[in-house]
Nucleic acid binder design. Structure first.
Lengths: 225, 225
DNA sequence: CCTCGACAATCAAAATCTTCATCGTCTCTC
DNA sequence: GAGAGACGATGAAGATTTTGATTGTCGAGG
């Protein structure tokens, strides 16, 4: 499997090359849009990892150029923290997946694997809903009854977990392990506190209440019957 | 490979059983010291995961009893957050490794694998040093010139990283990925700030300075020539 | 030798997370 | 249905972390 990395920042570039190399892929690295497009068009790659911010041609121009001749080449693009619109634009232009800097390498590797396994990914649905609550995964943006709601990192992680497993009762231990990456603790109530904070933001001023407590079991998010 | 879990807290116990089961081990679970010791003595297990806090016989008593007849059975014991002395005591009594609650399941699995692979683990050195700086990994305790120094979680993680790779220049990106589990970010100076905080605690009031800045490259911890 | 630009250090404010103690409420038992 | 005990909710303090702006410093090029 051969991967092309288009990334101008040297540190990031070499990190990616090394990491993916060690993961067993053949990796080429170029540091600008022109070379990126040119190389990618050679047809020898299975996947392109594309930074958006590039000197010369930027990421979208490369993507656009590429899609003309190679509609099926998998493209994973990297976007900066706040350039949220970028992601949307990127996907519209035909990228297959995106990743927001900073990200963990494990995350990147997981996506690369997915893309290579199933070829161009049918992008997963980008909005989760429950009643009038909406979570736009792309923009990391949450609204309820049309009202924008700001969440912190943990709150967002927690909400996403709830929504992805809507209707399931999630034990505290499961929540702890997903959101905090730690399990098996008895003497802490971080989960409770986090749920409370989340409730204050998404459930307090609205109806119906979505997050319910199941005594002795955990919490569920669902629209009450 | 067969594992015995001795854990009285039901949630933790079943979580462990399920997790290790899914990882491909045969698992038995008991919830008290008496049964734990009795079962373990049967000789059919390759590893015992032992909680310290137990009704009836506590973890150490089990361990002690066990070591009499089965000096080579691998034992991994679980200790609560602050009961630091427990760990020392545990290792002295012949446990092979320990884990502090709360911990990530991945962590547990890693240790279980290590123990099963190489049998009873030659416990790794438990103190790291550089000049008059000492880090006791078991107690998570840091001293410089004999003076106790309190570190936060991140500070400790950072220091441990530095010490484990003493003399190596660590690029910011590497530090970010190890301590924060995130890479590839340019527009943040968390690493710088963290290094500063650490320096304030371990380097500011002492000689020689251990953490050095290598311009354009990163940071090193070493005793200056 | 001086200046400029890149890189680091520093500082303080703001955001976030964790802990802890207390209070309320549910459930089981008698 | 009253009481006890477990479980969850709540509030607020405290600690930690992150962010952003500012200041300082090194090194290359003129």
């Amino acid at each position: 499997m051969k991967i092309l990395i288009v990334e101008d920042e040297p540190k990031t570039g070499s990190y990616l090359r090394q990491g993916l190399g060690e993961a067993g892929y053949v990796v080429d690295l170029v540091d600008n849009g022109f070379d990126g497009l040119h190389q990618a068009e050679s047809g020898e790659y299975d996947l392109v990892v594309l930074d958006v911010m590039l000197p010369g041609l930027d990421g979208w121009q490369v993507l656009q150029g590429l899609r003309r001749g190679h509609p099926h080449l998998a493209v994973l693009f990297l976007t900066a923290r706040d350039q949220v619109e970028d992601r949307v634009k990127g996907l519209e232009l035909g990228a297959d997946d995106y990743l927001v800097k900073p990200f963990a390498f494990a995350e990147l590797l997981a996506r690369v694997r997915t893309l290579l396994r199933r070829g161009r990914a049918p992008s997963e649905p980008s909005v989760l809903r429950a009643a009038d609550l909406e979570v736009d995964l792309l923009r990391r943006r949450v609204t309820r009854a049309g009202q924008r709601i700001e969440l912190t990192a943990k709150e967002y992680a927690l909400l996403e977990l709830f929504l992805r497993r809507r209707g399931e009762v999630l034990p505290r231990s499961l929540i702890a392990s997903s959101v905090w990456d730690m399990n098996f603790d008895s003497d802490t109530n971080v989960v409770d506190v986090a749920v409370r904070r989340l409730r204050l933001k998404i459930d307090n001023d609205f109806e119906p209440r979505l997050i319910q407590t199941v005594r002795g079991m955990g919490y569920v998010l669902d629209v009450p019957a």
